[in-house]
Design a protein around this nucleic acid. Structure first.
Lengths: 244, 244
DNA sequence: AGTTGGGATTTTGCATACCAAAACCTGTAT
DNA sequence: ATACAGGTTTTGGTATGCAAAATCCCAACT
């Protein structure tokens, strides 16, 4: 045998799209209707995040399907993706249960986030362009506005936007994807401390952006390390009332 | 409305398993037959790793289902998990294509891996017990044996075992899960350089284990940073022949 | 040559129906 | 209370059907 033949029927040449005549970059595809499983995923995730579905609750496929007006198939697929991303636990032969967050897990997530974001800040400082910096200040101002309005939800969202833009600056797709995953989960735990932490956090953001603008990698790294570590501290010192 | 009522039928109390009478720790459940989707996942992943299915190849659900002797459903579910873990790309309305690894992506993966493993080494050095150390030396010897046998596959496997045990030492489940994900993908790219890199790598491992045994967190961190960075370098200097 | 256009075919995405095995629930007898 | 027996629910998987979308193929046209 000269080479391992595929056990699957031959489907012709593997690499389509061979010659790139029309611009490869900025390939803004035609708008495609989102697959149903994606819509279902978003819907269930939203129900979990806003606590409509409580931690520990048993999610019955048939019930979800009926409630959302779809069949069991997309619900099953959504639940499995929700598992891989930590929103639900899938117990064999028993089904899906809304994940029960523990303090220990939150701490671990915040720890991993700190490491990834710190590295991300260093890379971002190394390669941010002028317009990137401008965009950073825009996002910073959006956050300050939310802070002034005392809008907790907008604050969390603005924070996520700023951090996620920094990760994109790194040019490391793998890194930003990973941070995105961790951040979305952190956000769930984070909401209760967003308000008290807000003032300090956005002051630290300003320093961070300045060091990125100056391409001072060491300083950016250091500030982000402090920033994420303080968020972690804030979580541990959060008021009793927000604990389940 | 006093509290957001669940839109789903009431299924009684949410938290089963309330009172932890029997030991919660070391809960070694009854052996359960692996779900079919898991078996299918492993099978397809194996076919991809050993290059039976080539990068870029179009995977047709029906063909895979027939080949594996199952229906389309478990194949679909496996393919979707394979996507979230980077093995295949799922294009809407077109199906699954074996992921085509690029040098850039490999570099990004190795970069993220370096950050995570470095942090992991620090934590491991902080909290490794005597028997943990003993186990580390066992794994180290297994690696040296594979090196002596010039068994490339065993070498990659032993390397993965050692690194994965170190991540478990951290006691950070989130961290070890994430590293596991990244490592499995790195392994794919890594195989071609395992042999030349082998000798140096296992020498570095010895230093690493020593510093962990001495609970010297700074040194462990530093050595792991060098170790992973050198692996990254080795990848860039790999022989032409191994490039696709 | 090269490109355009229009079916025919294939494949996905989802719905529906059905079933065995496992887990759960309940009531009764110990 | 505990244990047991039987009925119900739920999962996990199979099979099938079908509309929409993408692909492929081939002939007609510059």
């Amino acid at each position: 045998m000269s080479q391992p033949a595929s056990p699957l029927p031959d489907r012709g040449p593997t690499g389509r799209r061979a010659k790139g005549s029309l611009a490869d970059k900025s390939a803004k595809r035609v708008e495609r209707p989102a697959p149903l499983r994606q819509v279902v995923y978003d819907a269930i995730a939203e129900l979990i995040i806003n606590r409509t579905l409580e931690p520990g609750q048993h999610l019955v496929e048939a019930d979800l399907a009926e409630y959302l007006g779809v069949s069991r198939q997309p619900v099953r697929e959504a639940l499995q993706r929700l598992q891989t991303e930590g929103w639900v636990d899938l117990r064999p032969a028993q089904g899906a249960f809304v994940h029960m967050p523990t303090d220990e897990e939150a701490d671990q997530l915040l720890g991993v986030r700190a490491v990834l974001e710190t590295h991300s800040a260093r890379l971002a400082a190394a390669c941010a362009s002028e317009e990137d910096i401008a965009r950073l200040w825009e996002l910073q101002n959006a956050g300050l506005a939310a802070l002034a309005d005392d809008d907790s939800e907008a604050l969390v969202s603005a924070n996520a936007d700023l951090h996620s833009f920094i990760t994109e600056l790194t040019g490391n797709a793998v890194l930003s994807e990973l941070i995105g995953l961790v951040d979305r989960r952190v956000r769930w735990y984070y909401t209760p401390i967003a308000r008290p932490r807000g003032h300090d956090a956005w002051h630290e953001h300003a320093e961070l952006i300045e060091s990125i603008a100056a391409h001072d990698t060491d300083k950016a790294e250091k500030i982000m390390a402090q920033h994420t570590e303080r968020t972690r501290q804030a979580f541990h010192e959060r008021p009793e009332a927000t604990r389940e």
